[in-house]
């Protein structure tokens, strides 16, 4: 088996709102591996997004430890986390978060400007099938196209991990499938460890592994022996 990309030990995140303490993560131990496509399932508030944010260096844990390869993320300062995100991590969000005033190509360029060995923006956009739409602004693209720009933007720096929070959440099934195809292609061709959060249980069928979350804990882990292609998934 490939070496783990991420490893966590008793990872805990508590949100203190003053009156009540919310345990978003209540001691999570897991390992995620190179080249693996993992799907995280679970109801709202079960801790999936919190985990993803901590793995991606957007948030810090209350207690417990987390490593990216040999690099321990827990205890890192803002500056180190910024460098970590810039060098290793790609993000895809439910609401695309494209910069409205930049074209597709320029949105990708946002990443290539600050990374060490990036693809050309056009190359990254080709990988998600958007060569013809290079110079369109977000407002001129469909939701699915926008999300694929977001994926191109995430992978343009050749990240070692790709973290996706509800990438198809705002899309209908047809455009959703296009996005999933782009994700799978990146995972296959670049070997990028990919973590996908979804509410859509059908998507689990394209994963190598599926982790289910409940109340801040992993409630079950299942491994798919046979994976479905995105085009075979319907919702």
């Amino acid at each position: 088996m490939a070496p783990p990309v991420f490893r966590t030990e008793n990872l805990t995140k508590v949100y203190d709102t003053g009156k009540v303490k919310v345990h978003a993560l209540a001691g999570v131990d897991l390992e995620l591996y190179e080249g693996e496509l993992t799907v995280l399932l679970g109801p709202s508030g079960s801790g999936k997004s919190t985990l993803l944010n901590i793995l991606g260096g957007l948030d810090t844990a209350t207690s417990g430890r987390v490593w990216f390869r040999d690099l321990e993320l827990t205890g890192m300062g803002d500056r180190q986390l910024t460098a970590y995100r810039r060098d290793h991590v790609g993000f895809v969000f439910q609401f695309y978060n494209l910069v409205a005033s930049l074209t597709a190509r320029e949105n990708v360029q946002l990443v290539t400007d600050v990374s060490k060995h990036p693809m050309r923006p056009a190359e990254a956009l080709a990988l998600v099938g958007l060569e013809p739409r290079l110079d369109h602004f977000p407002a001129e693209l469909s939701g699915g196209e926008q999300q694929r720009v977001a994926i191109a933007r995430a992978i343009a720096k050749r990240p070692e991990v790709l973290l996706c929070d509800e990438p198809t959440g705002a899309l209908d099934s047809k455009t959703g499938v296009q996005v999933l195809e782009a994700l799978q292609r990146v995972n296959d061709e670049l070997g990028t460890a990919t973590v996908v959060i979804t509410h859509n249980a059908m998507i689990r069928k394209m994963a190598h592994r599926v982790l289910r979350f409940q109340d801040g804990r992993i409630s079950s882990v299942e491994t798919n022996d046979t994976r479905l292609a995105p085009s075979e998934i319907e919702w």
Partner: peptide, 14 residues
């Protein structure tokens, strides 16, 4: 806000 968050996620410094 979200664009700022995004830029940070992409690794832009403060």
């Amino acid at each position: 806000r979200s664009e700022i968050g995004l830029l940070k996620a992409l690794g832009y410094s403060n």
